[in-house]
Design a protein around this nucleic acid. Structure first.
Lengths: 200, 200
DNA sequence: GCTCGTAACTTACTTCGAGTAACCTACTGC
DNA sequence: GCAGTAGGTTACTCGAAGTAAGTTACGAGC
């Protein structure tokens, strides 16, 4: 089997087993067996157990970025941007419940450099939100915009975990909940800014 | 040394080393050595490496609960409850940067049962927030109150991590940021409820 | 003031899994 | 038909979790 295809298969299997059992409880032998290949092949392609985990996270990250970018492409107002972005995030979560659990709960942790990879995902999200705020309100305090973005990302992550225990809450409702809490505060901030700096 | 005292010492050392190096990179021999005792003593008192980690988390959890409870004791309005609770949380974080890193970043974890312990901390927080909402607005939709609580807890956790990279943002400012984003939305919800259910 | 019981502790293992060295095999271009 | 290489394997090392069995310190009872 060609390398690229084999790597993709390894990532799929690893993501599944990591999500099932947790990172620590999973052995490389087990992954290798389920892939139908021997352990050194995993090391050939991913270097280490940690490398394999990072590969999983990286792939998920790429996918999430693409979906989010596509979702917000047509948005016109800050509210619409936020709503579409959040919606894309929650839809990604339900499609990838297992690997999301892995990313958010298992990986954040065990492995320092996997953590950086997870941070990278958050960075994408906060950058997106921060850029929306800044593009619609260039006068906003930089620090405050960052804090807002972090707050929204944190809220979504946590709510996504909660949604797993509440199957009745789908992406649409989750988005509504988050928007209901945060939008009035964000809107108020955006409204006040032009008063403070009327030019722009 | 008596058991209770030795256990406390072990927890302190373990928390420190776990936070420094991460859970995976820390060996029980290393902890034992730094405690000045042999490895089987750790197993005698905590059963496993995971058990030791859970012990650390549990202790931090207890402390956080006590501080939060004390902080919100005198609150009169929902806004005050939230503000004091959040403030207590952020103050706990800066006082315990190390163990917080452990809880949130390291322990968020690779270890399933440690995760339950971390979930327990969140449960405390969401319960607190949920009970505030319910006590001030008994008509609120149960599911929505839970979602609100999760959103607030998620926002705070994320912002706490961000604060570590922004030493200029102390507990007071962090609390302000979170309140600025979430309070208008929560207030709006509480205001609307009596219209929907005018008795209570 | 001796000894019995137990709490606190240690040494010396076993086991298991991450990571590696060295070797094999089949196909592709020439 | 042979060389080089991509894709693969077997069989190890090594480090760390966890354990069995034994040792020391010390207070209670006689």
């Amino acid at each position: 089997m060609p390398k690229a295809q084999r790597m993709a298969q390894m990532l799929t299997v690893a993501e599944e087993i990591f999500a099932e059992q947790g990172y620590l409880a999973t052995s490389m032998d087990e992954i290798a067996e389920r892939v139908g290949v021997s352990k050194p092949m995993l090391y050939e392609y991913f270097g280490s157990k940690e490398g394999l985990l990072i590969g999983c996270i990286h792939r998920a990250r790429t996918e999430l970025r693409e979906k989010t970018a596509a979702a917000i492409a047509g948005a016109g107002s800050p509210e619409e941007f936020l709503r579409l972005g959040l919606r894309a995030f929650f839809e990604f979560i339900v499609d990838h419940q297992r690997s999301w659990a892995l990313l958010r709960q298992e990986a954040a942790i065990a492995v320092p450099s996997a953590q950086e990879e997870v941070e990278g995902i958050r960075q994408q999200q906060t950058d997106m939100i921060g850029s929306v705020l800044v593009s619609f309100a260039p006068e906003i305090d930089q620090l405050e915009a960052e804090a807002f973005a972090e707050i929204v990302v944190g809220a979504c992550e946590r709510l996504a975990v909660w949604c797993e225990r509440r199957p009745s809450v789908g992406p649409a409702l989750a988005t509504d909940y988050v928007m209901a809490v945060i939008w009035p505060g964000v809107a108020e901030k955006l409204r006040k800014l032009p008063e403070l700096a009327p030019h722009a």
